[in-house]
Amino acid sequence: MRIPGDDASRLEWLLFGQSEVLTWAQATDVLPPGRVRHLVASGRWHRVCRGILRAAPGGPYTREQHLWVAVLAAGDGAVLAGLAAARAGGLRGMWRHDAVDVLVPHQRRAVGPIRRLPPGLPAVRVRRARHLPATDRQVGRPARTSMARSLVDAAGWARTDDEAQAIVAAGCQQRRVTPAELGAVLDRLPRARRRHLIRQTLHDVAGGAEALSEIDLVRLCRRQGLPVPDGQERRRDADGRQRYLDAYWRRWRLHVEVDGAHHMDVRHWAADLRRQNRVWIEGDRILRFTAFDVRHRPSEVVAQLHAALTAVGWRPAPLGAVVAALATTTAPKARRAG
């Protein structure tokens, strides 16, 4: 829609601000009820669902109109939440998006899913929020939860733990939110779903692993008794731009790249080759794994990591030393003689 001019009416500004979606109450506040009924009956406006209108004759809905339908249909105090709110705030990702989640105040009567929406519109899932302070709200059109609250909610509502971790990691990797901001939301929500899992993911993100594949690599090293990488390493490429290495063991100058789907693109592939050549020129060793290998072929990844680290001087601690160290840390302290 074009920005209304200085002489625009209240209705024009309302439709511009809400992507041509409005409630019956809003429409009859600026137009006589008979005029609104005529616009709908003539097909110039379209009835979306009970109490919600679209100032258009029909056709596919835009993404913004999906969101406005969800918030307006949910009623007073409703705000976008979860993945819908995170995406409205700029989060990128290909997670399955079956419904638009909306939060309403807890004291309101439970609404449940909003039904009888036209074909092509995603379902609207209404949830009640017992605790939604002003700090967890974001100014936007339509209103939505803050990015940190959106990601915590989306992780809690995700279908699987892996999807929950991927959502949290993506928010941090894309610089949409910081681990500290997510941690502050968890502090305010002691009953948040997957609270421990989100905390654990934030701990790994704060250590330098931001993509889920890098987090999986760190945890794989811990489980298998391999030294944990120092985290992401900053380097400048041949053009002087700052780049980050996925995982780096500074002591042994070993660099590991975990390749996601974007590395299959020929443009990324050529850039990756140039970066890999530069790593070798500077004297470092480099290993490359796919994200699929890290998650589904861990034994092969561990074998190659073990071989590479051993080749540059790392030696695993003797089993006896490990057992003794564990015994020291777990044995009860001796009481003082009375």
Rank of each mutant, 00 (worst) to 15 (best):
S9H: 08
E12K: 06
G17I: 03
G17H: 13
S19M: 04
E20M: 12
E20T: 12
L22P: 02
T28K: 09
D29A: 15
A41D: 12
R44G: 07
I52P: 03
G58K: 12
Q65W: 06
L67G: 01
L67R: 15
L83R: 11
A85C: 11
R92T: 15
M94Q: 13
H97W: 08
V102A: 05
H106A: 15
R108D: 08
V111H: 11
I114N: 01
L117Q: 03
P119A: 09
P119S: 11
G120P: 10
G120C: 10
R125K: 10
R130P: 02
A134K: 12
G140K: 02
R144H: 10
T145N: 06
T145V: 15
D153A: 10
A158I: 03
R159V: 11
R159Y: 10
T160H: 07
D161N: 13
E163P: 00
Q173D: 14
R176T: 03
V177K: 07
V177H: 00
E181I: 06
R188F: 04
A192M: 10
H196K: 12
H196F: 00
I198V: 14
G208P: 04
R223K: 10
Q224F: 10
P227I: 03
G231N: 06
Q232S: 14
R234Y: 11
R234D: 09
R236G: 02
D237T: 01
A238V: 13
D239C: 03
L273W: 12
Q276G: 12
W280S: 07
L287W: 03
R288E: 01
F289G: 04
A291W: 00
H296M: 10
R297M: 09
P298W: 01
V302N: 01
A311H: 07
A317S: 10
T329M: 09
P332G: 09
K333P: 10
R335Q: 13
